[in-house]
Write a protein that binds this DNA or RNA. Structure first.
Lengths: 212, 212
DNA sequence: CTTTTATGAATGAAGG
DNA sequence: CCTTCATTCATAAAAG
């Protein structure tokens, strides 16, 4: 994995760790490993892989057992991120940046200025300026402009579509505009596979829970 | 278990107080996740559990199935069958390739092996192998490696924006980029943290026979 | 508290 | 390779 190249911090960090860390620390000047977002991302993915595979297998198993085959509708939205939102508080680390009103105003102004070219150098400058009004990184700025532009563009398209074409016929550019109900045929609410399989393992369970 | 959380259907996260995050954010502090060795161990165990469950499920499945594996195998890449003919106009369901978890894992493993040179021949091999786990083309593989590397690299150089405990700074300039704001980018000395969360774990495996 | 919306971030693909 | 764009995912914020 690529966290081999990531940083390692050694310190007492009061952020979030459960009792376990507490114990270790009080046990006598402990080194605490710190995971970066990327490290966690990788880990999360790896776990997600297994989770998904298990999910699929269980699903498959059920289908066979009950002579169901079908399921085309629900299979479509397979995605592998059961971990983060699920058990993930302690593991979850993703916090997303939220621009302060001040930052937003500045960004908006720059965007309007028409210099629609957020060059690399420019990003640095902007970031620097904005950091006076709150925590921010170059990536944040970069993403913001990307998103801003993309969404602005998209709105243009939609508006144009509404004006020129009253019909819902030859819509080629950006197909599904989710101005309506985004709830189509989704929400395959995966059930707990372990329970269905009657699987239970005290040792493992406790191990998993101690992460929480 | 609670990995049953899926996409789109988002719910409130009762565990991570957003206020805290916001405070930290505004305060200019960095988000760090602390992990003790023990926690790491727990995580490893969890992964091992998944691995074992998968193995057992596969075995179970094999012993029961005759050749009904299409549903599960194609899970990751089945698109929009039910929708296409609905409105008469072109509904492009999904047009871009999405790696199945299994494919992702394989790719990730290859990537981490360090043989950072995905030669033409190699691409073919990989594609061939991956196609056993879902629809894929050589272009997909090629792009994946390109993106993976590029993004990994970028993350490297941005990794330490707000590092509280880095004491050793080895200034690493990007070849085609100059740094004008000393406080913006900081390079640090990455340390190897965890080799591999290899999922082989006999002890856990031994405790998991109850699936049958 | 639950559901919906707005938007930051991740990522496959294309261009140069 | 590196940058840019388009699309999608996940979540903070807003609405109910």
């Amino acid at each position: 994995m690529e966290w081999e190249k990531q940083q390692q911090q050694q310190q007492q960090q009061p952020v979030g760790p459960p009792q376990t860390a507490e114990e270790l620390n009080s046990g006598g000047g402990m080194f605490v490993k710190v995971m970066t977002d990327e490290q966690m991302e990788v880990l999360r993915k790896q776990i997600a892989v297994y989770a998904t595979i298990c999910e699929q297998l269980v699903d498959l198993h059920k289908s066979m057992a009950t002579q169901h085959d079908l399921a085309g509708a629900r299979l479509g939205n397979l995605y592998c991120d059961p971990l983060v939102t699920a058990a993930g508080h302690k593991i979850t680390g993703r916090q997303r940046w939220t621009p302060t009103p001040m930052q937003l105003q500045i960004l908006e102004r720059i965007f309007e200025q028409g210099n629609g070219t957020p060059s690399k150098q420019k990003i640095k400058e902007i970031t620097s300026e904005l950091s006076q009004h709150g925590q921010i990184s170059e990536t944040n700025v970069y993403n913001w402009f990307q998103n801003r532009r993309a969404r602005s563009k998209r709105k243009q398209q939609v508006a144009a579509t509404n004006n020129t074409e009253s019909e819902v016929e030859t819509e080629v550019e950006s197909p599904n505009e989710k101005k309506t109900k985004p709830e189509d045929l989704q929400s395959h609410m995966p059930t707990s596979m372990a329970e269905d399989l009657g699987y239970q393992n005290p040792e493992v369970s406790s191990g998993m829970h101690s992460i929480d």
